[in-house]
């Protein structure tokens, strides 16, 4: 499984854009928003957690179809299905690779973008923490959606339609935890819910996703 992770990361680096694309998208969203709502620091700081969360979510969505599609097209997925690694493990590792290449850079860069959105230090911290806890769920849920649509020629748009509703609870708790934390309120509940969603998604969704992949390989 480590071999698979190493290969996926290496592929992401060699293909170029693996790390950068989502990040660039995230940057553009963070730059566009002030143009749309105006430069008042107060307004920006108030909507920043929401914008950054939506931006991270959309950036994550951008690269989802790559999780399985390329491996499906070149036959690797067939071969992985007959390999000694259980399909659940393959799915989990590929979701992890997606998180490392897409989620983690977003988490690391979020405080910087927070500065663009007039957040203060507490804002940097909470954006960082909530994204760190929440983005693994985004990758895993996305991997499930990608597994459902892997056999389809034009799966990209459908993938968004399937995955975005599934992202709603993560988004709500993530943005709420960030907002409350920044406002200086107690955010234990949304933070725990966010962590719970991530834990449950990572623990259970590989089974659903691998079932979907097996169906698609048939």
């Amino acid at each position: 499984m480590i071999a698979l992770l190493a290969r996926d990361l290496r592929l992401a680096i060699r293909a170029g854009g693996g790390f950068g694309l989502g990040l660039a998208f995230f940057l553009i969203v963070s730059v566009l928003v002030p143009f749309a709502v105006g430069p008042e620091a107060e307004v920006l700081a108030r909507i920043a957690p929401g914008i950054l969360w939506v931006g991270a979510l959309l950036a994550c969505l951008l690269s989802l179809d790559r999780i399985f599609q390329l491996d499906f097209e070149d036959g690797s997925l067939d071969l992985l299905a007959t390999a000694p690694i259980p399909m659940e493990g393959t799915v989990a590792v590929k979701a992890l690779a997606h998180w490392i290449t897409t989620g983690l850079p977003l988490v690391a860069a979020a405080p910087v973008f927070g500065a663009l959105m007039s957040l203060d230090e507490r804002g940097y911290w909470w954006i960082f923490v909530t994204l760190l806890i929440g983005t693994p769920a985004l990758s895993m849920i996305g991997a499930f959606g990608a597994a459902l649509t892997v056999g389809l020629k034009r799966g990209g748009l459908l993938l968004s339609l399937l995955v975005l509703p599934l992202y709603i609870p993560t988004l709500i708790f993530g943005a709420e935890a960030a907002t409350r934390g920044i406002g200086g309120f107690d955010n234990t509940t949304p933070l725990l819910m966010l962590a719970g969603i991530t834990a449950a998604a990572v623990a259970l969704l590989p089974f659903a996703a691998s079932a979907a992949i097996r169906i698609n390989l048939r």
């Binding site: 509703p165 709603i168 609870p169 709500i172 708790f173 709420e176 509940t189 949304p190 819910m193 969603i197």
Partner: peptide, 11 residues
């Protein structure tokens, strides 16, 4: 997830 959303939205 729909069930979860219901509670998330309430919250």
């Amino acid at each position: 997830f729909a069930f979860l959303s219901r509670y998330a939205v309430n919250f």
